[in-house]
Nucleic acid binder design. Structure first.
Length: 443
RNA sequence: GACCCCAUCGUCUAGCCUGGUCAGGACACGAGCUUUUCAAGCUCGCGACGCGGGUUCAAAUCCCGCUGGGGUCGCCA
């Protein structure tokens, strides 16, 4: 049976790169009807934090990545020590103070990588360095091979060793991980052999890079999955984008569901080259998902954010919110953008940027605004249709173009020169705020 | 520096395995249409096989070299 694992270390938040590794493992498990194991690599007791672990689990759940089993390496220390002891007894490992080291044999190792094919290493290049970074020479003047730490001097097991034992004992069939682990692979294969385990298949994923071409980092933008969550990206959009970064269904399709990816997924189709993370494309995909989502669901997604933003506890009128969302649906790439663009509706008073204020004042429509206010005040049912009818009447009576009034009004009402249709905007803004802002425009 | 990986539009990619389609799509960008503005939508445009050698009737595709980029060289994971 196919069994894969994602093995994050709880020393930081779930990273975009880690999320994609998890995602590809998960897709492979699902596509092969196999199992997906989550293994928390918390052997470093100093750096591992419970809050990070919870955040990682939370982000995985948010992305929809469910696991069949979960393990904690911190609970398996005895197991690692037993195996180290066995290696000691077999003479393959040796003690160095309180630490146990694996004696590195001098030989070549072939790694078959499912994505890259055969990779050959020679441990003759795994040379120990001295404090100055120079090769350490043995008695006969030749470089000393670097032995691998199994158990550290403080008694805790080292990463490579735990990883090998766990993958073997948990029955992991495929190790799918980042390309940064390629050079760990030969050492681990040596350990599988020493322990008498058969090695799993390996697949090394290309790395994700920042827009500057370097490693994805905070400098280039948000790196934590939770950052994207807070910024109002939808999990399905992030999953879609991350999948597209290094994998493609091959039919020119860019927007695809999780279920179709599961159906078409294949490790062999994963790209070899590193990919640059593009926020523009993520935004576009997110906008596509928002446009495809039904209005009531979007409202449900938006309500907690609106409450938090407005600091209000009373229930919001859903029918009203649906009208607003409908109006803005094609105009907000993220949920936060929605909040920004519609803030003028929820706020009691708005501030107008100096340059727009100037535009407004220069249009000199005080008299027309007053006439319109009088006209609109008489409307009983303040809906777009009625507003437009009355507005057209006023414009006709004044013998001016509709646009002469539309533009200054939009600025006065919304604080912005751009936005959806004016009459719909007035309807969702409501009669009270509309009349108030129109009256105060030239005050 | 040593070892390893990689290389198609600015970016993500299809095509490469099994040589022969004007090298296809998407984001971004530019132009137009539509429109009270913006967005959305539609149409059009810009734009790539890193370089050099082979192999072949024919190379993005196979081979070699170079260059460039990335990764690893922790008692971190």
């Amino acid at each position: 049976m196919i069994k894969v694992r994602f093995a994050p270390s709880p020393t930081g938040y779930l990273h975009i790169g880690g999320a994609r590794t998890a995602l590809f493992n998960w897709f492979y498990a699902k596509s092969q009807k196999g199992k997906f194991v989550l293994r928390i690599e918390d052997t470093d007791q100093q750096r591992s934090k419970k809050e990070y672990e919870l955040e990682i689990l939370d982000s995985m759940q948010w992305l929809g990545l469910d696991w069949d089993e979960i393990f904690y390496q911190s609970k398996r220390f005895d197991l690692y020590r037993q195996h180290a002891q066995a290696l000691l007894e077999k003479g393959i490992a040796y003690k160095d103070g309180d630490a146990i080291l694996f004696k590195m044999p001098k030989r070549s190792i072939k790694v078959y990588d499912v994505i890259r094919g055969e990779i050959e290493f020679d441990t003759a290049h795994f040379i120990a360095l001295d404090e100055q970074g120079k090769p350490r020479l043995g008695e006969r003047g030749e470089p000393v091979l670097k032995d691998e730490v199994l158990i550290k001097a403080d008694g805790t097991p080292a990463y490579s060793f735990c990883c090998v034992i766990d993958d073997a004992l948990m029955g992991i069939s495929h190790v799918i991980r980042g390309e940064d682990h390629i050079s760990n692979t030969p050492k681990q294969i040596l350990m599988y052999e020493a322990l008498g385990f058969s090695a799993p298949k390996f697949a090394h994923l290309p790395l994700i890079m920042g827009e500057d071409g370097g490693r994805l980092s905070k400098r280039t933008g948000a790196v934590a999955v939770s950052d994207y969550r807070h910024k109002g990206y939808l999990p399905e959009a992030l999953v879609n984008y991350l999948t597209l970064l290094g994998w493609s269904p091959g039919n020119n399709q860019e927007i695809f569901s999780v279920s179709s990816t599961i159906k078409n997924f294949s490790i062999k189709k994963i790209n070899k080259a590193a990919a640059v993370f593009s926020l523009d494309k993520l935004k576009w995909i997110n906008a596509e998902y928002i446009k495809a989502k039904d209005v009531p669901s979007l409202v449900e997604l938006l309500i907690p954010r609106l409450k938090e933003n407005q600091n209000r506890q009373e229930p919001l009128d859903k029918a009203w919110l649906e009208k607003i969302v409908k109006l803005y649906k094609k105009r907000f790439p993220t949920l936060v953008d929605f909040l920004d663009r519609t803030a003028f509706i929820f706020k009691e008073d708005i501030s107008i940027a100096p340059e727009l204020q100037e535009t407004l004042q220069q249009s000199k429509r005080a008299k027309e605004f007053e006439i319109l206010v009088t006209k609109l005040r008489g409307i009983e049912s303040f809906d777009a249709e009625t507003i437009e009818k009355d507005f057209r009447e006023v414009v006709a009576a004044l013998d001016i173009k509709a646009s002469d009034l539309v533009h200054p009004i939009r600025i006065a009402l919304t604080g912005s020169a751009v936005g959806p249709g004016l009459f719909e905007t007035m309807e969702v803004l409501g009669k009270k705020k509309t009349l108030k802002r129109l009256s105060q425009a030239y005050a």
